[in-house]
């Protein structure tokens, strides 16, 4: 039996009318994806947590302007994205925070290259591999912000092009193009030859 779960938009409407429990429920649903999204963008856990909390507080304060006919997820992601961009611009944010060690140069990203080249990679192993996750983050950090965004939304968060386009405020075609470009640069960073890459299977 499937439990009767209120939609995000219904909860947002209740929260707007003063139901704090409804907003807490929304927080529970989205805190992890938003935290990860922001972390992938800015690459620092501590700052990502701070920005995540700020995103939800801003969302709460702005409930009056949220249109329940639109998707709550797109709205909270947009707020999170904007705050993450501000955080990246604002060097103050990172001044006293220890930056994760960036992986650069040959030898340190061999594991990632190896997994990418593996004809039979195992998803369950990938999911448990922290080192691999750090490798990915390190390479992601080298990408321009707008390319990082599309990889995070489409590949990591598994959003459709349509969903991502709403958050980024661009067309689906732009999302597709950026994603292609993001993957090529990602591979180049790892020293993988991209000359004969076919089209993305999702296109």
């Amino acid at each position: 039996m499937v439990a009767d779960r209120a939609s995000d938009e219904a909860l947002a409407k209740l929260a707007r009318e003063g139901d704090t429990k409804a907003f807490e429920e929304l927080f529970e649903r989205y805190k992890s994806p938003i935290l990860n999204f922001i972390y992938r963008l800015i690459g620092n856990r501590e700052t990502a947590e701070e920005v995540t909390q700020e995103a939800f507080i801003r969302a709460y304060k702005s409930l009056g302007i949220f249109d329940p006919r639109k998707r709550f997820s797109a709205w909270i992601y947009t707020i999170a994205r904007n705050l993450a961009k501000n955080a990246l611009r604002d060097k103050k944010y990172f001044r006293d925070v220890s930056l994760e060690k960036a992986i650069s140069g040959e030898g340190e990203d061999i594991k990632l290259k190896h997994v990418l080249s593996d004809p039979n990679p195992r998803p369950d192993e990938i999911a448990l591999d922290e080192e691999l996750s750090r490798n990915v983050q390190a390479v992601l950090k080298k990408l321009p912000a707008e390319l990082r965004e599309v990889i995070t939304l489409c590949n990591i968060e598994q959003m459709t092009y349509k969903e991502a386009s709403k958050i980024l405020g661009v067309s689906e075609a732009t999302v597709m193009n950026r994603l292609r470009k993001a993957k090529l640069i990602f591979m180049k960073e790892l020293g993988i030859d991209t000359k004969s890459f076919g089209r993305d299977k999702n296109e």
Partner: peptide
């Protein structure tokens, strides 16, 4: 190379989320 891209998608989809 298509396999690399497939692996890329797989890696990203199964990346360990941070807690």
């Amino acid at each position: 190379n298509n396999k690399v891209l497939e692996n890329f998608d797989l890696i990203m989809a199964n990346l360990k989320p941070i807690e």
